[in-house]
């Protein structure tokens, strides 16, 4: 047999892997708060962080464990409303406590709606996760207890503070979101490279073989639902508490679920970084499109046209990605980076 020497490793970057995320975090904590405008925080970074985290959560379930879900927004809503109610009803519970408990509630709901995955696969599973989407939204609108009997169903999120330090301003909320997202993303990264993460991939790639080698398939699937829903639930808290500053069921509709699915498809399935690449595109793209449209077409380009053109371009993008780059923006980025590095090394 011909000896297979690895031909791919020669171009590997020389820097250790942790350098890039550490530099990025240093920049995000040290530089961005100083130079960012409030528009940057309110319109770009906060939704980016919330959706990126939701993408990480969905990627664990769909990208790694191979279980398609259209219920992400339901788990976000569960997280947001649970955190609101814990915060409202439990005396003396610190905000962080409410958030963790909210994640656990979302995780429990995730397990319940993950049960069909023990029998269903692919498309059928996706349809059954729709049940979560509709049920949660229905329950939150139907029972006004969840929104503290407020007449409009729209409630103000509590003021953010950690350890007595108020984080109300745009920068404060940004740092609050950034911290939670960084911690959970780091843990998610550890998870997907652990034995459990490899079990997720094994079940995704070949369920029968996974069962034969003794991976507890049913337990592992439910674990994927639980962990994924926890993360998405916390993303929901960030979305409502830090970004919108209101808690309402409407924002967590099926469109949002699809949006998060698109984030991981465009960004890259089974990639933690991919979720943030995808979220960045999803957040920045409509802003860019509206500027471009306004610039080219002037007044004709109103919000209706924007909304429609946004859907069309996004749909086209997704089809393009599925055909040309099924591994998403991450793969594209890695390829470009490798090229640049090679070019740089050869000069």
């Amino acid at each position: 047999m011909a000896v297979i020497t690895s031909d791919l490793t020669s171009a590997a970057p020389v820097l250790p892997k942790w350098i890039a995320p550490v530099l990025l975090l240093a920049f995000a904590y040290g530089v961005v708060p100083l130079i960012g405008s409030s528009y940057l925080f309110e319109a770009i970074l906060l939704p980016f962080l919330a959706l990126g985290l939701a993408g990480v959560g969905l990627n664990i379930l769909t990208g790694y464990a191979g279980q398609v879900s259209l219920g992400s927004a339901a788990f976000m809503a569960t997280g947001a409303f649970a955190a609101y109610n814990f915060n409202l009803r439990v005396e003396g519970l610190p905000l962080i406590g409410s958030i963790v408990l909210a994640g656990i509630v979302a995780s429990a709901i995730g397990i319940v709606f993950g049960l069909p995955s023990l029998r269903l696969k692919g498309f059928y599973l996706a349809v059954s996760t729709l049940a979560a989407q509709f049920f949660v939204q229905w329950a939150l609108t139907k029972f006004s207890w969840f929104s503290n009997d407020s007449a409009s169903g729209v409630i103000d999120a509590p003021r953010l503070s950690i350890g007595g330090v108020a984080l109300d301003g745009a920068v404060g909320r940004y740092l609050f979101a950034l911290t939670i997202v960084s911690i959970l993303t780091f843990l998610a990264h550890r998870l997907v490279t652990s034995q459990t993460g490899r079990n997720f991939i094994a079940i995704r790639d070949n369920e029968t073989a996974a069962r034969i080698i003794g991976i507890p398939v049913l337990k592992t699937k439910l674990l994927a639902f639980a962990i994924s829903s926890f993360i998405i639930g916390v993303a929901g808290v960030i979305w409502a508490f830090a970004y919108l500053r209101t808690v309402e069921p409407d924002g967590f509709d099926l469109d949002r679920s699809f949006q998060i699915l698109f984030i991981i498809i465009i960004g890259g399935l089974a990639s933690i970084r991919g979720a943030f690449f995808g979220a960045a595109l999803i957040v920045v793209f409509p802003l860019g499109l509206s500027r471009l449209g306004g610039f080219l077409l002037g007044d004709v380009f109103d919000s209706g046209v924007l909304d429609m053109s946004q859907r069309i371009v996004l749909g086209a993008l997704i089809i393009l990605f599925l055909i040309l780059e099924p591994d998403g923006l991450v793969a594209l980025w890695d390829r470009v980076r490798r090229r640049l590095l090679l070019a740089w090394q050869s000069t």
């Binding site: 550890r190 998870l191 034995q195 459990t196 996974a210």
Partner: peptide
């Protein structure tokens, strides 16, 4: 019936998955 998305090493190591007794929290 390999796990295409895992490295060769991880594929082979997965053959020992039945022995793993640590839980995900411990692993993380």
């Amino acid at each position: 019936a390999l796990f295409k998305g895992l490295s060769v090493l991880d594929n082979v190591a997965s053959g020992l998955a039945y022995k793993v007794r640590s839980n995900f929290a411990g692993q993380v």
